[in-house]
Each structure stands twice: as C-alpha cells, then as structure tokens.
Design a protein around this nucleic acid. Structure first.
Lengths: 194, 194, 194, 194
DNA sequence: CGCTAACCGAGACGGTACGTCCCGTCTTTAC
DNA sequence: GTAAAGACGGGACGTACCGTCTCGGTTAGCG
C-alpha cells in the first residue's frame, strides 16, 4: 500500500497555479486568458507551468475540475425529512442564482460556455456540473409530485425550465435574476402556492 | 440634399469583410478569431480591414448587427387573426430551436455569450437579439392568456422559462433540444393541451 | 529597366541587423550567438529580425557575405609593374596576418571555422573567402617562378604552406604570427633572399 | 599517506560520461552540444553529470584530455635508429592527415578551434595537443638538417608550414589533404627528394 | 475626359504570447 | 549516505497575430 507520495514542491506549484488560473479566467475570460500571466500570478516560473500542463486547454480543464470538488454536495436525506418539496426547489434555485452571481464559478460562466464548445474536457466538466445541479432539482420536484404537493409535471422538463430561466437571465439579458424573483418563477412553472 | 454616395469599392470590401467575419467567428469561435484570416477569407488586404474597423470587437459587433437585419421580423397582425396562441408559441420556440442549431447564429452563440461579457457593443447586440425574440413570445402568451386559451401565467416569466429551457439544452448539456420536444415543453410550462 | 526599389525601412533594418550580427558574432562567438541580443543591439524588434531571417544560420551567412564585399580586391596590374614577386608575397601574407588579428573578420574566424562545418552557406562563404586570398598568393608566386626570381616550387602547394602557417599560428597556438615574422617564413618556404 | 581510493561507481559514471561527451561533441559540434543528451547517452542522471562537472566547458575540456592519452606517442629513439628523417616527416604528416579525417578528434576539430577561443582550459588542451604533434615534427626535421639529409631550414618554421598546410586544407577548403599528397608537400617545403 | 483624391493590396514595424528546449541549481526519494 | 530522478526559475528559440505605419498602384467621379 506504499503509494508514491507526491513531491511537496509539485503539490505547492500545482495548487498555486490552479488558483491563479481560475483568477485569470474570471478576470480575462477564456479569450484573453494568458499562460504568461497565470504563471506570474502564481509567482512561478513559466516553465514550471508548462511542465504540468502543455497547453491552455488542459490547464483550464484541470482548474475547473479542481473547482468541482466542493459545490452542491447532496444534503443527503433532506427530502424525506419533513422539508416540503417547494421550499427545497426554491432553495436550490436560490443557490443557483447566487452561484451565477457571487460564487467562484460566477465570473467564469460565460468563458465556460465558450470553452466547452472548443474542448471536450471542458465540455465534460461543464455538462457534468450542470447535470449535477439539475439532478438535485429533478429529485426535489419528483418527490413533490409523488407526495401530491406539486401538480403532476414532468420533473425533467420542469427542472430545465427553471434552471434555464436563471441561466437565461444571466447570459442573455443585462440583469441576472435575483433571489426574490425565485418564488414567482417557481409559481409560474410549478403552479402557485395554494 | 445630395448625400455623398459611398464609393462602390468601400461597399464591396465592407460586405465581403462582414461575411468573412461571420464565417470566421463560426469556425474559430471568439477566441481563435483572427483578423488576419478574416482579411484573407475576404480576399482583402489586412490594411483595408483595419481601415474600417480599428479592432476585433468592433468588427464582431458590426458583423452581428448585419446579421440582425433579417431574423424574426414580426409577422405583423398574426395574433388577432385566428391563429391560436398555443400554436404560435410552439412555432416561435421551434424557430428558436432551429436558430440555435442550424441558423447562421448557431455556431456563434457560445462565442457571443462570452464576447457579450467583454464588450458592451456585443452585449448590446446580444441582449437586443434575445429581447426581440422573447418579446414575440411574450406577445403570443399574453394574447393567449387574455383570450382565455392559456391558463393565467405571467407572460414574462413563462417566456423566460421556455426560452431558457431551449438555451439551457444548447449550452449546458451535450444534446440541444429538438423540434419534437417543443410541445412537451409547452405543455409543461403553459399547461397541457385540453 | 524599372527595378522595384526597396522599402527604405527594410534597407535600414537590414543594415543595422547585419552589423549587429557581426558584432555579436565577434563578441559571443558562434555558440553563444543570440538572435535576441542581435535585435537588441540593432535597436530593432525581434519580429523584424525574424521577418528577414528565419533562423540563426541564415543570418550569420548573410552577415558574412556582407563582409565579403570589400576585402582583398585585386590591386589590378600590380604584378607586371616592377614590383618584385617576393615583395608581393610578403605583402599579401602581412595582409593576412593583420586580417587574422586586427581586421573585421579577425574575431570571427574561429566561429567561422566551426560554423562552416554546420552550414553549407557559411562553408561556401568561408571557402570562397580563403580561396580568393590564396589565389592572389598563387598568382604572385607563379609570376616569381616564371620570371626566375623564385626557385621553381609548385605555386599551389607553396601558397597553402604559407597561408597555412599563418592560420596555424592563429588557431592552433597561443600566439598568432606577427608581421615581422613574415620574411623568415617566406625565406623558409620559397628560399632565402639572395 | 593512504590515499582514499575512488568509489568504483564514480569511476564508472566518469568514464561513461566522458565517452558520451566526445560522441556528442563529434555529432552535434560545440554549439549544439547539450548536457542533457550527454547524460542520456551515458545512461546517467543529469544530476550525476553536474556533480562531476559544473558546466559544459569543464566537461568538454576533460573529455578532450582523456583523448589526449593515446595519440602521438613518442616513438622513443626512432631518430637515431637508421630511419631517414624525410620518411619520418612524411610518416608524421600522414598521421596528422588521418587524425584530421578519420581519428577520434577529427569530427571535433572545428568545434575545438572555436571552443579554444572561449575557454582557457580548452585552449590549454588544444594548444598542447598541437604543440606535441608539432614537436615531433620539429625533432625529425632538426635531425635531418643536422645529419645533412635535409637542406638547412628553420625546423620550427618548416614544421608550422607543413602542419599548417594540412590544417589549412581541412579547415579552409572543401577538400582535406589526402595521404598521397604528402610527399609533394614535403618536397615543396623541405626540398625535393634527391 | 483628364486629374486628383480616395481607396486599395502588400507588407514592414514594434510588440506580446505562444509552446519548446536546455541551462545550472535545488530538493526529494530510493537504494 | 550517496546516487538517480526530476522540479525549479530563467532565458532563447522560432511562430503567429496584434494594431500601426508607409508605400506605390489603381480607380472613381468631379470639374
């Protein structure tokens, strides 16, 4: 079971570079993303950067995957505790609203949409990331429909409409959605609060 | 009142360059978009390109505005003719589905989403373009609600949910929506066909 | 007869770069010769340098050819004027001695010997340069032999022995030959002054 | 006075590296000589190489000195045995001709000429190497002159003229001298065979 | 219907970033 | 405990575009 431990210098450089890459991505976008300045940001030699990632795309992809570790971990058995489905849906959408405005991915979303079109790896990350969030929503809606709390909609379609609305506001309009608009949205798609 | 007519050479170059720019944008994306190859594509000297547009953003913006002329021109008084609201909604969404897959903008959408974040001009175009399509949808839904054909939803929210769903599938999942999925989507958001 | 004139900027850059290249070659040698610092020396952008010469070897070769214009132009009809063959030989060798110590090529000779081994173009220049100087010597010796002033040696072999001795001292010993050693050398190979 | 014997592993690495260095020098020249590939050639870690030689010049110098062991071994008392001076001279020059074409130094000569200009250590080796060969020639000529077999030339100048001719052909012309040209050369400088 | 002003292509210019290779130093791990 | 592996910062390589510029040559349209 003696797995070869990683050289601590490598660990250090890797971390610094991934963080720098995310910062750069957020500030400069995908076009405009410069290896040169990632290295500078990380306080690391340019050659060190290239030693770990041969090109832009691979670095971006890895940086994003690093991001993927924490977000939206399933709150486990939240559903069959007494939390009502509707509240859960609103909570998830509110979380999404913030993720697209405040969160670490926020600034990077437009770049991601673009990058995903160019790189399979980025696409993999991005579609996975979205699918994960969507699944939580689908589960909540499904539970609500099953329990009779919500009207009988297709959970998949409903989840896409709801998420889609939030993304639409972020990417296709000047003003993203705010948290207080969420209840109205949910009403509109899942039926009004009784 | 004799306005100086434009030199035909200028007109010619302009046209060729705008078309070339769109082609390039579609093939290479926004990152990867190269002034050099736009000029080459148009069979025009690089200096001619720079004479008309000082930098890439301005060129891209103009190219897109050129695109904006034709699409989704309002079919005038379609609504108060007998066309049922629901059919109209489906028609508009189907059109959007195609625009995001086949149309001239299709290949450029992810690039646009990104570019809009960087350039006010591109953002202006993109938000306007989206607003225009959305408005048609809002109008149709509003008419349907007013005539009692559709259940009483907020037309703005419904339009965003529907459009959002189509965009979501295009940008955040591996498979874009297809035309035959549209009716189901409309059912889900506006209530099933009676 | 209307030859297209060269852009004056090109002429200017070219000149500056060739000069800088020779300086650099003299100071840093062939290994150690850096495109980067040639450009800097010439006060010219790195890209301008690469626009004219795609790589080191081509630049070096051209710089040397530029050098080739002036040296050892035949003093025309020197020989059949009364100048004695022996004096002429001494004069040519003295000139060579200086060329290998003071002249513009001096500092570059060892680099050249090496570079000629790597690049056909450089070899072409270098062998040509040497042949030219040698030929003058051959002519002088031949004249001397024909006129009976010198003992009947093979002019080609004698020329190589004489030139070779000078080069040998420059490249294979710590001390190059000096002008005052020339007469002794000539005595040794062509026979003593009567 | 018990001198610490050298670690056999060290001895092994040293040998391998010196050989590899010579190979590399021959193949890649002095410019183009890469520590990286010397280590690879020797099947040894790069750090091992740098433990023994801090930089390329020192390595090159040592490699050459290693070479210096075998050549031009003094034929001891050859001279006062009956071997005629002229034959001895031809033999030494023929040996030189081969050394500059076939021998282990052959490929390295132009690199050496250049390197000697840059590094005192290399210069030391190179001048020494040349001096050694030259001395043998001087001795032979001296003996011939003393015995009356050769006409009374300055042995030093004659040796330089003869060696110089051979080097000249190797470094300054496209075709090096061949063994069968040696007698003619000797005739030319030392006087024809009686 | 000839002249002049504009527009044209070609491409040089100084820059910046790319991704590659090697340098010489250094830390870490493994034998 | 020392040798091999290889990470590190640095710097040059040659390439590709950027946006600015200078250059002659062509072409319009006015006078």
């Amino acid at each position: 079971m003696s797995q070869t431990r990683e050289d601590p210098r490598v660990t250090r450089s890797r971390r610094a570079l991934l963080e720098a890459a995310l910062d750069e991505l957020a500030e400069a976008g995908y076009a405009g993303f410069s290896m040169e300045s990632v290295a500078a940001r990380a306080g690391v030699g340019r050659s060190t950067l290239y030693r770990h990632w041969n090109d832009r795309l691979r670095l971006v992809a890895d940086a994003l995957n690093a991001l993927n570790v924490q977000p939206s971990r399933p709150p486990a058995d939240a559903e069959h505790t007494g939390v009502p489905a509707r509240a859960r849906v609103e909570q998830l959408l509110t979380h999404l609203v913030h993720a697209l405005v405040d969160g670490p991915v926020a600034a990077v979303v437009p770049a991601l949409v673009h990058a995903a079109e160019q790189s399979g790896t980025v696409a993999g990350f991005w579609h996975g990331y979205s699918a994960q969030r969507r699944q939580a929503l689908v589960d909540a809606i499904e539970a609500g429909v099953r329990s009779g709390e919500l009207r009988p909609v297709d959970p998949g379609l409903a989840a896409i409409s709801l998420s889609g609305a939030v993304f639409y506001r972020r990417l296709m309009t000047p003003e993203p959605m705010t948290a207080d608009e969420v209840p109205g949205l949910v009403d509109s798609v899942l039926g009004a609060d009784p």
